[in-house]
Simulated scan of single mutants.
Amino acid sequence: MREGPISDAALIAHLRASLLPQRFPVRREAELEGGAGDAGDAVSFYDHHWPAPSLLAASAVRVAGGDIAAALRAAGIRQLLRALVAKTASAQEALAALAERIDTAGLDIGLLVLDVVTGTASGAACGRASAVLARSERAGTAVLQAGDIAWLTAGDVAAPPAAVATPLDGIAALVHERIGRGRSGAACALLVKARGRLAQEAAFSLGNTHGDIQVAAEKVRRFLETHGAGEADVTGIDVALDEILTNVVNYGFEDGGAHEIVLALSIVSNLLTIEVQDDGRPFDPLGIPEPDLEADLESRQIGGLGMHFVRTLLDRVSYSRRNGWNVLKLEKHLVAEAEKAS
């Protein structure tokens, strides 16, 4: 039961916390780290998302003002930036479209959009912010290579020298160094590790709602059909993913908030690999005991039958906990329709 009135400070703290993104999942193409700090006179945050299967967008934002209005404005700008990037796929066009729609006074924004397949990156900034691409190219477009680090800053945070070396323990230390010492603003660093492969790889995120599961299923089906997978394989994978994603949505998150679930797909020599990643509570679904198929329904272990079907429909399923994320790896050897007909 709540005791006493809700303070503005408590509401602002809750809104600030809601702006924090999930930890960036472990990926072969890129590593991303961000941070934000405030002295009470602003609301700062960083964000990252995938507006398309091969596009990664990141931003660092500082909104002047430390009251509820500033916190609400920050939350709205986060959502508007995501929508504009999805429609334009360019950092410059997204910020231009933002300026056409809202008053940007008191806004500091650094924005980056990277195509992980081609390495092409666009960066743009407004206010006291910067978008530094590889080799100190500021704002504009560049082709990033493995080992390049792109920087976004907003507010009192300055980007490091272009020649800064990547620490052995990753780029987190670089970001935390910039955010420290009571600075008001945000920073985001993106390390390019390798190029993605367009034809045989895809990655996208979905929300933790049942409606998002259907959207994800359609994307997976299109990916499989594009690569000639047979209908039986497509149907089996659809059933297995529905079981897995439904369990994540229903039981994976204890805070009741909005989360993203990441799906990464690849096909190599007809071997389909799907990684389902979520930052919910640690849980290994493979630890659920195999059901006694001879027992009546009331006596069977809850969840056991669903995971039994998953194991039956796929060739291999494995689980790991990486960087604060649950990672369920699914593998299936695909049989093309042409092979079945021969």
Rank of each mutant, 00 (worst) to 15 (best):
G66C: 06
L72Q: 15
D279C: 13
V157E: 02
A17N: 13
A336H: 15
K87S: 10
E29M: 06
N326C: 11
N323E: 12
L133C: 03
D315Q: 06
V26F: 01
H308D: 12
G211I: 09
I274Q: 05
E3G: 09
E290N: 09
E201I: 01
L265V: 06
D278C: 07
K329C: 13
D284A: 10
T104K: 05
A74C: 10
A105T: 15
A158P: 02
S18A: 13
G196Q: 09
I12C: 13
I149C: 03
P291Q: 14
L84C: 09
E294R: 04
V175Y: 13
F223L: 05
D169A: 11
V262C: 13
D156N: 12
A64E: 13
R222D: 13
K219W: 05
A105R: 10
R16K: 14
A83R: 14
E100W: 00
G4M: 13
L95F: 07
V335M: 07
V117Q: 05
V132N: 02
L224P: 02
W50L: 15
L114M: 13
P289S: 10
V132W: 04
I261N: 02
L11C: 06
R222C: 00
A203L: 06
V192D: 02
P285W: 00
D115S: 00
A258R: 15
E218P: 01
